[in-house]
Design a protein around this nucleic acid. Structure first.
Lengths: 204, 204, 204, 204
DNA sequence: TTCTAATCGAGACGGTACGTCCCGTCTTGCC
DNA sequence: GGCAAGACGGGACGTACCGTCTCGATTAGAA
């Protein structure tokens, strides 16, 4: 028996059970978050709903905030769509906006994300986690679209990319999250037109 | 002492003490909010900091949320600047955006407002309060600017006003609140140009 | 308004309520101790039984052990009988032993005291508390009886007082607490005779 | 390797391992008991200290209490000295008391025994176990000495044996366990004299 | 001036959730 | 089939706040 074998001997014990429990917790947590929101959700109710001891939660995450952050982050990540590449700025834009709207429209993610972003002002680690897991990938997708359009000559090379990304993401996010207003296809089409015009003018 | 003086004293006497206490609470609440954020602020620490009993708080507001909402709402309202009316869309826009940025840059209001908007997803009354006290007045200012520009022929009459307002407010809000990025005068100038172009294209 | 008046202003708030709550807790704690014993008694069940928040317990005592120690200590203290002074060693002895037996026979105090003495081996503060509140007063009563008997010439002046006290207390305590055997009046009479003989021989 | 060797290993191999594990647990348990006492000792720390899994403990004993009871019981039994038979009550007594003191002075057994006797008030099985394993054998030794002395005419035939045993055991036990006072040879000599006198008077 | 009624600071109240620890059981893969 | 490792459900620990309550002192206004 080698040392490696000995060390690894019991390392995998209960992987199946662990998986089952983790899934029960995840499901319960999302349900509680949807019903009560982040502030009113309690670890005790999640554990109760999952049919699980509180320790099972704290064995996986060090705190309520850590649990919710990770759950949201992974759910959001797996929902990250492929960057559109239709070959034309207008269609790329519309596709990205539609995808973005569909994600934002998911009431659960939207509501919780808002609470997390709010908390992030007072918690550097949380801010970092949200940036890495949520914000950055989406901004990167937008950046790719814009850069492609510049390469094709559809947008001026002097475009301020960061500002461009803001223009792309912000109006829709505000409408859905803060105003909680409509964002149907007609709205999206008009918005696409407006953003396209804005991008062409957003030069340093 | 004349009767009038006596009456005058009678009308304001208790009110003076009450006013003093209210001010102490308000100041303490803003300080705690700034240091700890909405979620971590406690009514007990506010009372302690203000040197008053907890009952003094609950005599004025029915709950923590109500207190913070009202405090934020009134502070935000008194900070509402006059709507710019320079006679030209571009300057109106830039002035509004600069004002808006200065308000958002106030770290306290920004952070707390985020937490409150997050909570609003689960609390209709809070949502209503925020809309009336925070959102609506600002959107109205933007609407006025846009309508004036339409009237002057600077913007097409078919402009989707709601979308136009989103375009005006959202990118800056996102940059300051979520991205927490820079928003200096240069950025603002480019943003103004981009928004102006977008508005001209945002027709139904 | 003097400083004293100002300082004392709110110091007495809720004394009546406090008293009521303390009594409810005390009663519930004794009941739980009787039913479950020290180890199995929980602060939560005491609070529930008393119709009281857990904080009400922890506002009064810093821990479960402190609460039980104090409750037992005070109950035992108030049960401390006057030292017998019949003028004769034999009757003093019998009276003291009878009193002692009656206290020990109280099933609650006996059982809990045993658990506390056991814990005391590992907790200096607890040991100190038990000595001061429980052990010392009883030993003092015994010492008085013995000294009186020496003064009257019923016992030799060379009597080892500490040993004498052991002889007086220990056999009965063991019978009741450890053996849990009978200790009726007949037994007590024989025991009194035996102890009296022992005391006369317990010289250094 | 021959078949016999293989078979022999098969037959004893498991037993040897089991024995080694049992010893490691026993040693760890006594160490933890000594350091923390019964209440604060945890099965988890015992397992960790012994370098074994918790299941190894629960495969051997059904509960923490059962484990400690059995461990203490067997240790105490193997420490049971031969009943003294010097041919004279005084020397028998002194020898028994000295042995008893030496056993009680063992800090581990003493402290744990106290906690177990306390728990026994609420647990009949534990009480039974302690009586059989700890109390009864020692009382029997004392009984033998007393009966021998009666047979030799050193003690009256009317002696209440149970009371006699109490007189023998209790004062020393109290001194060592509860008072935690000194019990040197000088004390023991005086005590022996006193008990001898008491025994002669302890008649029904 | 004396009375009255509101408000004050202090802090205890019942409750709920936090994150930690340990019980006795269960599961896994190695030996 | 026993082993070490360690996750499992359960439940108590002691802490922190919530929003409510009670207390006696303070404060002005009205009588």
């Amino acid at each position: 028996m080698t040392v490696e074998q000995k060390k690894g001997r019991a390392a995998t014990g209960g992987a199946v059970l662990r998986q089952r429990v983790t899934e029960a917790i995840t499901e319960a947590a999302f349900a509680e978050l949807a019903e009560a929101g982040y502030a009113r959700m309690s670890m005790e109710s999640v554990a109760r709903r999952a049919g699980v001891g509180k320790a099972a939660l704290y064995r996986r995450w060090p705190s309520k905030q850590a649990m919710v952050t990770e759950l949201i982050g992974s759910r959001v990540s797996e929902a990250l769509p492929p960057t559109p590449a239709t070959g034309a700025l207008h269609t790329d834009l519309r596709e990205l906006l539609a995808t973005f709207r569909d994600q934002l429209a998911h009431p659960l993610l939207a509501r919780i994300a808002a609470a997390l972003f709010a908390e992030a002002s007072h918690d550097g680690a949380l801010a970092e986690g949200l940036h890495t897991g949520v914000t950055a990938p989406r901004r990167e997708a937008a950046r790719t679209i814009l850069q492609d359009a510049i390469d094709r000559g559809e947008l001026p090379p002097e475009l301020d990319l960061d500002l461009g990304i803001d223009l792309l993401i912000a109006p829709l996010a505000f409408r859905v999250l803060v105003i909680q207003g409509r964002s149907d296809d007609e709205y999206l089409e008009t918005l696409t037109n407006a953003i396209e015009a804005a991008l062409k003018a957003a030069v340093r």
